[in-house]
Simulated scan of single mutants.
Amino acid sequence: MSERQVLQPTAEHPITVTPTDGRVVVRIGGTVVAETDAALSLRESTYPVVQYVPFAAVDQTVLRRSDTTTYCPFKGEANYFDVTVAGTTVEDAIWTYEQPYEAVGAIAGHVAFYAEKADVAVGPSS
């Protein structure tokens, strides 16, 4: 197997991780599966901002680790979780970088939800 390419953020492909200003509430199928005032906003190049929620803020009873993995040369290897609510399973709804590269090290211990699989809302802090 060849070595995986590791890239650093640049002016042409910037990545920033900052505390989210507000409370993040994540719903799947109308059910709240995560809620926190301690989310992180990851901005990468021209992509939409992604909210990274502390893993501990996610309802652990709805999670099942999937076999899916992907690789990002800027962030590292991602692992995925399925979410089951009200008897319905949403496959690979969550991804996490358990050992992210140093440039985005702050997202360790956090998970992100696919916008098309979950309703991720940012509102005023409680």
Score class of each variant (00 low, 15 high):
Gln51Ala: 12
Ala39Tyr: 02
Asn79His: 11
Val50Thr: 11
Thr70Tyr: 06
Asp92Asn: 15
Thr69Glu: 09
Thr68Ser: 10
Tyr52Cys: 06
His13Gly: 00
Glu35Gln: 14
Thr88His: 14
Ile15Lys: 06
Val62Met: 03
Leu40Ser: 08
Gln51Asp: 08
Ile28Asp: 01
Val32Glu: 07
Glu91Asp: 14
Tyr80Cys: 02
Phe55Gln: 02
Ala56Pro: 04
Val58Gln: 09
Gln8Glu: 15
Arg23Met: 03
Glu91Leu: 13
Val53Arg: 03
Leu42Val: 15
Thr46Tyr: 05
His13Asn: 03
Gly22Asn: 06
Glu35Met: 10
Arg43Ala: 15
Ser66Tyr: 10
Glu44Trp: 04
Tyr71Val: 09
Gly22Met: 08
Glu91Gln: 15
Phe74Cys: 03
Cys72Glu: 05
Asn79Trp: 06
Thr89Cys: 10
Ile15Leu: 12
Ile94Lys: 09
Thr10Ile: 09
Glu12Asp: 15
Arg27Gln: 09
Pro19Cys: 03
Thr96Trp: 03
Lys75Gln: 05
Leu40Val: 06
Leu40Lys: 10
Thr70Val: 11
Gln8Thr: 14
Asp59Gln: 10
Arg23Leu: 04
Tyr52Ile: 04
Leu40His: 07
Pro73Glu: 01
Val26Ser: 05
Val62Trp: 04
Pro19Asn: 03
Asp59His: 11
Thr89Phe: 10
Thr88Leu: 12
Thr96Ala: 15
Thr61Ala: 14
Thr31Lys: 11
Ile15Asp: 06
Arg43Gly: 13
Pro73Ala: 02
Thr70Glu: 02
Tyr97Thr: 15
Thr68Gly: 00
Gln60Trp: 07
Gln51Tyr: 01
Tyr52Glu: 06
Ile15His: 05
Tyr71Gly: 10
Asp59Arg: 14
Val85Ile: 13
Leu40Tyr: 04
Pro54Asn: 09
Gly29Arg: 06
Thr84Leu: 09
Ala57Ser: 15
Gly30Arg: 07
Ser45Val: 08
Tyr80Lys: 03
Ser45Gly: 12
Ser45Gln: 10
Thr88Ser: 11
Phe74Gly: 05
Tyr71Asp: 03
Tyr80Pro: 09
Gly29His: 02
Phe55His: 06
Ile28Val: 14
Gly30Ala: 09
Arg27Gly: 05
Val53Gly: 07
Glu12Lys: 12
Val90Ser: 14
Val33Asp: 05
Leu42Asn: 13
Ala57Ile: 02
Thr46Glu: 12
Arg43Phe: 04
Val83Thr: 00
Ser66His: 11
Thr36Asn: 07
